[in-house]
């Protein structure tokens, strides 16, 4: 059988190759041809020669990048925020999903699920308006209504960096909660109910059931999601960090991530070499990280490894 297959050869696969063709063509155009541009990070910018013919300057552009304190700030922000989001997102997502699972009323389940999923569908531009209508210190709801209600002083939200790690984490969780609820719920529903019934018969408490049935059953998905996030720890949700702070300069120290920096370098000065250098830095370190994550993933659960 096997040898026969080989003999009929590759011809039987032609339709398959044709089916793959549009997508592969797009990948080549959209993803592979632009790779040529990575060299910009190693060239001097000289428009009169054409950007691809500037002199090779080795790592000079990177030296320039790392000479400023920006490089450290954006790297730190990107990694710390990602870690924060992974941990908080996981704990929060699991808690919500497990408690949601306790709600039996079908109608209520539907309503809750539909409601919490709404933010997931909104663009960050829209979310930035939502945030602004709450946080603006002159016209925002929090200062004008909430804080007044409790007799507290108004807070200048957009100029106090110390609040922003919380605000950004909140927005991130808020926007993603519907999605993570779905992810975990799907897994939870797949757990055989007889486990729980047996545990109930044995007199297990709720917490024991969660601890000894639910969590172990969710282990693969937890591991997979964590690994995926770690692999992308050098990338940030650009919309979140760029749109939500409304470009407030006093917040730069806590809102600049690598993606934001790269974009700002381009928008402010049209500095394409700096933007490319940042991109190369991000890709290179990101690549190493995802390889590491993948190796770890293979160790834990081979099926979920990316490649």
């Amino acid at each position: 059988m096997k040898t026969k297959k080989k003999k009929t050869g590759w011809k039987q696969f032609i339709p398959l190759y044709i089916m793959a063709l549009p997508a592969v063509t797009y990948l080549i155009i959209n993803n592979y041809m632009p790779l040529y541009g990575m060299q910009l990070a190693f060239r001097e910018l000289d428009y009169s020669k054409g950007v691809f013919r500037g002199d090779f300057v080795g790592l000079r552009n990177f030296k320039f990048l790392f000479a400023t304190s920006d490089a450290w700030i954006m790297t730190r922000n990107t990694i710390l925020y990602n870690l924060l989001f992974i941990v908080v997102g996981m704990v929060f997502g699991l808690t919500v999903a497990i408690l949601f699972n306790e709600v039996r009323n079908k109608m209520a389940r539907k309503v809750y699920q539909s409601a919490v999923l709404i933010p997931y569908f909104m663009s960050m531009v829209i979310v930035s308006y939502l945030a602004y209508s709450y946080l603006s210190s002159e016209t925002g709801f929090i200062n004008n209504t909430l804080l007044k209600l409790f007799g507290k002083e108004a807070v200048a939200w957009y100029s106090e960096p110390k609040y922003w790690p919380y605000i950004l984490t909140f927005v991130n969780i808020w926007k993603g909660m519907g999605y993570s609820l779905l992810m975990y719920t799907a897994r939870l529903l797949a757990i055989d109910a007889s486990y729980y019934e047996a545990a109930t018969v044995d007199g297990a408490t709720k917490w024991q059931k969660v601890r000894y049935i639910t969590l172990p059953m969710l282990r693969p998905v937890i591991i997979m999601m964590t690994m995926l996030s770690i692999g992308r720890i050098f990338y940030s949700d650009f919309g979140l960090f760029y749109q939500i702070p409304m470009g407030s300069q006093s917040l730069y120290s806590v809102t600049t991530t690598i993606d934001v920096y790269s974009y700002r370098a381009l928008m402010k000065l049209g500095d394409i070499t700096m933007s490319s250098a940042t991109g190369v830095y991000q890709s290179a370190v990101g690549f190493v990280l995802i390889l590491t994550a993948n190796t770890l993933m293979r160790k834990f659960s081979k099926d979920d490894a990316l490649f």
Partner: peptide, 9 residues
Amino acid sequence: ISKDVLTDQ
């Protein structure tokens, strides 16, 4: 001066 001076739109 308003507390919001830096981000007032």
